[in-house]
């Protein structure tokens, strides 16, 4: 049984806080769960908190981009928050610049960013 990453709801925003080591199956489950939850709860934004993630590989990097793309299809904006310097450097060295993903330094700033862009949309 692989672990499932919990998805929490704060208002119109879904919060995914990744606290476990990400293996491929966990990532696949997360993508599925998240897509379902966005529709079920008609979320307008997704915040992925990776403060606790210390090691990334290209698969995890791609996951972030994929989740952002899926969310955008479902009209929810994705913000990745709390990326550590070492993780950022690794992703750059891997050549992943996460073009379509918005980022913020911490959860608070991420929520503020979503709030601003939703206000702009409404």
């Amino acid at each position: 049984m692989t672990e499932r990453v919990p998805i929490l709801r704060i208002g119109e925003v879904l919060l995914v806080s990744i606290q476990v080591d990400l293996d491929d199956q966990t990532v696949m489950n997360l993508q599925e769960d998240l897509a379902e939850q966005i529709v079920a709860r008609s979320a307008r934004g997704v915040v992925i908190d990776i403060t606790a993630v210390e090691i990334v590989d290209s698969f995890v990097g791609r996951m972030l981009a994929t989740i952002a793309a899926i969310s955008r299809m479902l009209d929810a904006e994705t913000v990745v928050v709390g990326m550590r310097p070492a993780v950022a450097i690794t992703l750059v060295e891997l050549g992943l610049s996460l073009g379509g993903v918005r980022t913020a330094l911490d959860l608070e700033k991420g929520l503020a960013l979503l709030g601003r862009s939703n206000a702009g949309r409404a």
Binding site: M83, I89, S97, R102, T103, L105
Partner: peptide
């Protein structure tokens, strides 16, 4: 450029 992209990834 690498430095700037890394900073962007972190949200700055």
């Amino acid at each position: 450029l690498k430095t700037i992209v890394a900073a962007r990834l972190m949200g700055a």
